[in-house]
Computed example of a mutant assay.
Amino acid sequence: SSLQVRLQNLSARYRELESNNRHIIDNLKREKDTLLAQMEAMLRLLGEKLEKAVRALIQFARVLAYKTFTREHKEAIVSWLALDRDNPKSNAHFVKVFARPFLTDKEFDKGCKELDRLTSSFPAVMEDLEQPQRRSMRR
């Protein structure tokens, strides 16, 4: 009878542990799903910023009349470059890689030179882009 009581106690404890494990597993699955959804949203955002930067570089490089980036070009490109403020050149490399198949050699050189100019003076360009926003906020 004492063995039977011990067996019942162990069985009850086993069911309790099993129930707790299911609860823990369900919580972990929910956390995993939440993290995956957040990562997907981040990747989508990064994809949009990179796409805008690539499109801006392509448009600039193809139009002969453009000698320097317009404000719209800069805004699109800087929003991507600013994701790594310490090393904007690494993000500029991504823009070049993705734009390359859509440009002739001459267009690519034009775009790369201007992009390199922008990244070499990146802090000043960012400050320049922020100036009008500051003025309009004061009024």
Rank of each mutant, 00 (worst) to 15 (best):
S1Q: 12
S1C: 04
S2F: 10
S2T: 10
L3K: 12
Q4Y: 10
Q4E: 15
V5G: 01
L7M: 08
N9A: 14
N9T: 15
L10P: 03
S11C: 05
S11K: 14
S11R: 08
A12Q: 12
Y14S: 14
R15M: 15
R15Q: 13
R15W: 09
E16L: 02
E16Y: 06
L17A: 08
L17Y: 02
E18P: 04
R22E: 15
D26N: 10
N27L: 06
L28I: 06
E31K: 09
E31R: 07
K32W: 08
K32R: 15
T34D: 14
Q38E: 15
E40L: 14
E40R: 11
A41W: 01
M42V: 13
L43V: 12
L43D: 15
L45K: 11
G47Y: 01
E51H: 07
A53R: 02
A53K: 06
V54L: 03
R55C: 11
R55F: 09
A56K: 06
A56M: 08
L57M: 14
L57Q: 14
I58F: 03
R62E: 02
V63K: 08
V63Q: 09
V63H: 00
L64P: 07
L64F: 10
Y66G: 05
K67W: 02
K67H: 09
T68I: 10
T68Y: 06
F69K: 07
F69L: 08
T70G: 10
R71Y: 11
R71Q: 15
E72P: 00
H73F: 04
H73T: 15
K74Y: 06
E75F: 04
I77Y: 05
I77R: 02
W80C: 00
L81E: 04
L81R: 02
A82Q: 01
A82G: 11
D84V: 04
D84Y: 00
D84F: 01
D86R: 10
N87F: 02
P88S: 01
K89L: 04
K89G: 11
N91R: 05
A92R: 04
A92G: 14
H93Q: 00
H93M: 03
F94W: 13
F94Y: 11
V95F: 06
V95W: 10
V95H: 00
V95Q: 00
K96I: 00
K96W: 02
V97H: 01
F98L: 09
A99N: 01
A99I: 02
R100M: 14
R100L: 14
P101T: 05
F102Y: 12
F102S: 13
F102T: 08
L103S: 06
K106D: 05
F108L: 10
F108N: 06
K110W: 00
K110F: 03
C112T: 05
E114F: 02
L115D: 03
L115P: 13
D116T: 07
L118N: 07
T119K: 03
S120K: 12
S121W: 09
P123I: 05
P123K: 01
A124T: 07
A124D: 08
V125S: 13
V125M: 08
M126E: 11
E127A: 01
Q131G: 01
Q133F: 09
Q133A: 12
R134D: 11
M137E: 15
R138S: 09
R139A: 03
R139H: 04
